[in-house]
């Protein structure tokens, strides 16, 4: 996933930015072990992105090492407000596939989630997935 030169927030385990297409992006740093604090921090940044009122997000987890249950639960968005209405999760390594599938299967996010191995397909899906407020 190519990061733009400007407008990228660098967090402990993530890079996060808003794409010109109105789709948010967040990329997990190589070897990151994501904990609840990282999830909080990332969510705060994602919700503060300048762009449309609501947007989908592409999450590149291809180089993730681990994510705690508390962080997974937080990302499931149950019981909290967010401007994000869909998750496209990029996976390719066995580790990221397991984590992605686990998140989808067991943490049951409140918004539509899909796993992708190709970034273009993830972006296409995001474009087709409408915001609940626009439906």
């Amino acid at each position: 996933m190519d990061r733009p030169i400007k407008g990228v927030s660098e967090l402990r385990t993530y890079y996060t930015w808003m794409g010109e297409d109105g789709i948010a992006r967040t990329q997990v740093k190589p070897g990151s072990e994501v904990v609840l604090e990282d999830a909080h921090e990332n969510s705060k940044v994602v919700n503060a992105l300048v762009g449309p009122a609501n947007y989908p997000i592409v999450i590149d987890t291809r180089q993730i090492k681990s994510i705690t249950k508390e962080a997974r639960d937080f990302f499931s968005m149950r019981g909290r407000e967010s401007r994000v209405y869909a998750f496209a999760i990029l996976v390719d390594s066995p580790l990221s596939k397991i984590i992605g599938n686990f998140f989808m299967g067991l943490n049951e996010p409140r918004v539509p989630v899909k796993l992708f191995t190709k970034e273009e397909k993830a972006i296409d899906w995001c474009k087709k997935t409408k915001s609940p407020t626009l439906q």
Binding site: S66, T68, K69
Partner: peptide, 25 residues
């Protein structure tokens, strides 16, 4: 322990760890 190999065994280990966290809850 999750090593840096990132192979299938690492993935299974991560899956088992996550399963344990869910079951514990």
């Amino acid at each position: 322990p999750i090593d840096d190999k990132g192979d299938t065994l690492t993935a299974i280990a991560a899956g088992v760890n996550m399963l344990g966290e869910e079951l514990r809850g």
